[in-house]
């Protein structure tokens, strides 16, 4: 799906990674590992297309990403550190806008997604009245509402309780099983039945620091 070739990124005159090449294949689960500050988030943001400050080539389905940007964005779901949930709006209002950005409206699916996240009855309550974990669940409800094949998840397990962590692990595994691809970072020991490949940024560092 997404092929990365000879990626090089510096930040504040420090080389984060250099000569990095790998491919995210359909049905694969890739965990990016590394110590704090090793560039995991930077790598994910480069993959998603938010960070342009790098050299190297990115190919989407065999073609340069810049030439198929809209197709790429249609197939991408990105979850960053922040939950992408407006605190003054309700979960329903937040997710309606998310669906509109995907080009559709479907209130039933939104309510079903919220219910699956254990938020039945919270659809009309402003998000600022929800706990951090619940806001995170509103954010994760979007996984059910996107048709994207490639998921890029930055620390998706933050603030979740044990049951929600297990549910999300299952959901990630099912997505890979269905032919999707997931790239994620986490400091949590991922338990999933689906085979997991690991990209360790510390081991790839050009010279030991």
């Amino acid at each position: 799906m997404l092929a990365v070739d000879d990626l090089h990124c510096e930040r504040d005159e420090r080389v984060l990674f250099s000569g990095l090449s790998f491919e995210v294949k359909s049905g694969s689960l890739l965990q990016v590992q590394g110590a704090n500050g090793s560039g995991k988030t930077t790598l994910l943001r480069i993959l998603a297309g938010l960070n342009q400050d790098f050299t190297g080539n990115l190919h989407w389905q065999g073609r340069p990403r810049a030439s198929v940007l809209t197709e790429f964005q249609q197939s991408l779901f990105y979850l960053g550190h922040a939950p992408s949930v407006n605190r003054t709006l309700t979960p329903l209002q937040n997710l309606r806008w998310f669906c509109a950005l995907q080009g559709y409206a479907d209130d039933e699916a939104i309510v079903a997604a919220l219910t699956a996240q254990g938020l039945a009855g919270y659809a009309g309550i402003p998000c600022c009245q929800l706990s951090a974990g619940q806001q995170r669940r509103v954010s994760l409800a979007r996984l059910e509402l996107t048709a994207a094949a490639l998921w890029i998840l930055d620390e998706p397990f933050t603030a979740l309780d044990r049951l929600a962590v297990a549910a999300l692990e299952g959901r990630i595994g099912r997505h890979a099983e269905a032919g999707g691809a997931v790239v994620l970072t986490t400091h949590h020991a991922l338990k999933t039945p689906w085979p997991l490949s690991i990209l360790d940024l510390d081991a790839l560092r050009p010279e030991a620091l």
């Binding site: 297309g49 809209t70 992408s84 949930v85 407006n86 605190r87």
Partner: peptide
């Protein structure tokens, strides 16, 4: 401001719209 802080801005920039 709030869109930047809560990450919504990234979603808008990454959307195919």
């Amino acid at each position: 401001r709030s869109d930047f802080d809560d990450g919504t801005l990234e979603q808008l920039l990454l959307s195919p719209q």
